[in-house]
Amino acid sequence: MFKPFANDTDVMNIAGDAINIENGVKRLTISGNLTIARDKAGLANALALQKAIGAIVEALQSDASLPAKLPDEPDAPSGTADNPFI
């Protein structure tokens, strides 16, 4: 069960990894490329996508304190290391 904005670890996969919906507490990401065939498998994929988008809209609409725009978050600082393999 995919609960939008509930955690930073879940990923909803539709049709293998054609569509990836990566959950996040502040931002979730939908990426991919899905061909929907005019068949029952296509319907199942379209419904899965619709259900996921529906849950995202519902989570946002039911948030009483939804801000107009969430501020951008800078990336955490990265580190460096000498290459131990050369």
Binding site: M1, F2, D8, T9, D10, V11, M12, N13, I14, A15, G16, A18, A41, A44, N45, A48, E73, P74, D75, A76, S78
Partner: peptide, 30 residues
Amino acid sequence: KNNTRTNRFFVDKRLPPDEAAQLSDYKRSG
């Protein structure tokens, strides 16, 4: 192609904890 499900990134407990990446390492990493 028919595999549609919700998955979860996880740390494999078979690895020594000090040798394994943690979920927090990737957070806001860019």
